[in-house]
Structure formats: structure tokens, C-alpha cells
Amino acid sequence: MLTINVNGSDRSVDVDPETPLLWVLRDAVGLTGTKYGCGMALCGACTVHLDGQPVRSCVTPVGSIGAAKITTIEGLSPDRSHPVQKAWIELDVPQCGYCQSGQIMSATALLAQTPKPTDADIDTAMSGNICRCGTYQRIRAAIHRAAEIAGEKP
């Protein structure tokens, strides 16, 4: 038995410590918002935060996590109120939507580090996330918009 902290709750999981975090989240914890795309950290669909840092959960053995706090798309906000989620809705970013959990987790990590990112910052932070529907132009606009929304907060 391993205990991991997911979205603020400790969860005990009975899995091999070598199991990638992605499959623990999806199949053992039951949080399927985080997606499988490549299994090789090439596409970013599986991006979650470990203590606020974006990681590719498909290549992160669950046994390596220790006490780090895991945040998944489901833990970003209880009501789609995170500035990134608001901006994504406002600009109608998703198409098929499959990669968007990973896109949003990469974008939120970027904005936490860099509240007013430049286009070059966005290129760097987001180039690990593939969108086969090609929503990149809207993702870029939505990251800028999310920065504005976050700045409007009291």
C-alpha cells in the first residue's frame, strides 16, 4: 500500500511502486480527467502538478512521489472558476478536448511561475503539449486572457 496526496486528500493505493502515476490516478483513484497519449512524455496529455510543478504522469513512477502534493485537472477548482478554466470557456478553446486537461495543467503551472507570460514564454512552456485538433492559437490567446482574469482579482 502506498499513500499519495491527490487534490488535497490522502489516498491509499495498492499498486506496484513502478506503476506510472497516470494509471494510478485513472484506474486506482478513479480520476480520469488526466489522459494517456503517448506513454513517453512526448505529448503532455498526462500533465499533472507535483507540488505545483508540471510533470508527465505517464513516466512518473508512483513510488517516486513520496509526500509531494499531486494536483490533477479535477483538483484545479471545484467549479471551473480557475482563471485558466474561465479563459478556456470564454475563448471556446477545446475541440475534441482530449488533450485539454494536459494543456490546462501546463498553462496553470506557467501562470503560477510567470503571471504575465510573453508569447515566447508560452512557446517554451506549452511546446510539450500536442493538440491534434490544432487549438494552439486559442490556447495562446486564452493564456493571455487568463493572465488578465487573474490580474483582475482583488
Binding site: T32, G33, Y36, T72, E74, Q85, I89, G97, Q100, S101
Partner: peptide, 17 residues
């Protein structure tokens, strides 16, 4: 705005997987 967008920004949309 698309009717499926809200479910696609919080992980709740159900895909085949």
C-alpha cells in the same frame, strides 16, 4: 459557445478511454 466546453475544461467529459 460550444455546449461541450465546460465538461472539457474540468476533466469530466467521458471519452472512450
Amino acid at each position: 459557445t460550444r455546449f461541450d466546453t465546460p465538461a472539457k475544461v474540468d476533466g469530466s467529459a467521458i471519452f472512450g478511454i
